[in-house]
Nucleic acid binder design. Structure first.
Lengths: 260, 260
DNA sequence: CCAAAATTCAAACGAACGTTCGAATTTTGA
DNA sequence: TCAAAATTCGAACGTTCGTTTGAATTTTGG
């Protein structure tokens, strides 16, 4: 047998957990986690730190303390390993986002004047929930995602663009409906803007500090996500709602231009 | 002699131009541009497309139609080549940004209620001017810059962080003064957010289309930059100005959370 | 014009890359 | 318990990486 068809295998957490505890036969040499899990954990950390190209198979296998050939045996190739890490986390998150969008569009809990904020919440809450769950990746996955969105490797870009194009389209249409006065061209640019910024900001240390500060003041759990979003969403929604071409602003800008 | 000390040499445009036309002795074999210029042009394009790591010396020299050893001879190393491309463009742009900031802080053309928009203009106008000047890089350089800011290579990050830390600090303080009500923590996150997004957005095709559309309707030249900024700055300033923790928004977000 | 300096060139360096192979070992299931 | 399957392992594959070398060539300056 060449290697197990991992891309179709059931989603399992990367870190040793309840799922692995049952099988006593698996690797008891160096520590409890299986080779697959150790590879996934090491690769996730290295990919988010150095990017796809700069992360070598040897660095992954050395960090994971497994044989060099183990990645090819268990995952087939470096690309399939990366895809596995990305999709096992992101697919469920995307499904959850779309589920919330469905619910909102069905009118559940809809607050029409704050539709934009609610759409933002539908995008963020699943990401924040995932970040809080250490067994599903924790905050490291947000960093990983941030790196992946900015990664220039054609393979990474193609994977993200093709696999999640439909979901992005659905959110784009929802935002367009919530912002009927905004020209399509501006909406497109602003969405591009906030989506890029979301991934890089959530991956940043600043956001991490703010989340930690909010957690320290709150009672913990899901309500802290609302607190964080109440702090974070306003400036995203404000940017989406801003009116185009305000004469007074234009004059102020022209005054700076005159200094050149 | 090993190689000319290029990092200290006068800044010259990458594309063959007036500067090169005078010296008739230089390379007349394949075309008019010198080896250095051909390398710089090819490397800039490849770096912005594939990132630092994924761009090989062989790809650069093949594209530039020069010998493989030419990069090491003229620039010393791949890192020094990258640094040269970045700094010869970015240093003057940063100086111009700071010059505008100086002028604003000295009260020249200051429009206090729109101080935020003017600070944004001080950051953008030099970048837009550079993007319009084909001899100083044109729009390709904005793409290059966008890639560079997102590049995970330690060398690239160190170069950007160390060389332009002071300039970033100055702008951060200026924004803080223009937004006295915003908590320092939020300002820090929002600026991080905006700066990341600026680089990736300006490098995007959406922004390029919008600039082209504005140019098509305008009379060309610098006034188009004001038109673009009048379209672009409002949603940046709106995001910076947004109030934190608005109760009605929080309720709308909590309603989405309840759907989970 | 011609020695000296600058530049170009083909070739090779050692190192690191992702991947593959067959043997050794461990785990599985009847 | 024992053959079969799964996994681990060391070693090597061929390729590409950035860089260096020394000779050939071109350009410079008196």
């Amino acid at each position: 047998m060449r290697y197990p068809n991992t891309l179709l295998s059931p989603l399992t957490p990367f870190t040793p957990s309840l799922a692995a505890a049952g099988r006593a036969h698996a690797r008891s040499r160096s520590d409890r986690s299986t080779t697959r899990q150790r590879i996934l954990a090491a690769a996730e950390h290295l990919f988010l730190t150095h990017g796809y190209e700069a992360t070598s198979m040897r660095a992954i296998t050395t960090t994971a303390n497994v044989n060099l050939a183990a990645v090819n045996y268990h995952f087939g190739s470096k690309e399939e390993l990366f895809a596995q890490i990305l999709t096992t986390r992101l697919d469920p998150m995307m499904r959850e986002r779309l589920r919330l969008l469905d619910a909102l569009e069905a009118g559940k809990g809809m607050d029409r004047p704050h539709a934009v904020e609610q759409l933002i919440a539908a995008m963020f809450l699943p990401a924040l929930a995932l970040a809080r769950d250490a067994e599903r990746g924790g905050e490291n996955f947000l960093k990983f995602l941030g790196r992946a969105f900015a990664d220039p490797s054609p393979f990474v870009q193609r994977l993200l663009a093709e696999r999640y194009a439909d979901a992005h389209q659905r959110f784009k249409r929802a935002f367009a409906a919530a912002l009927p006065a905004l020209p399509a061209q501006d909406l497109s640019m602003r969405l591009h803007f906030i989506l890029d910024a979301i991934s890089s900001t959530l991956a940043s240390e600043d956001a991490r500090r703010l989340i930690a500060a909010i957690d320290a003041g709150g009672e913990g759990g899901a309500s802290d996500d609302v607190s964080f979003l109440a702090r974070f969403a306003p400036f995203l929604s404000a940017s989406l709602r801003a009116q185009v071409n305000q004469p007074a602003q234009r004059a102020a800008i022209a005054a700076v231009q005159a200094l050149q």
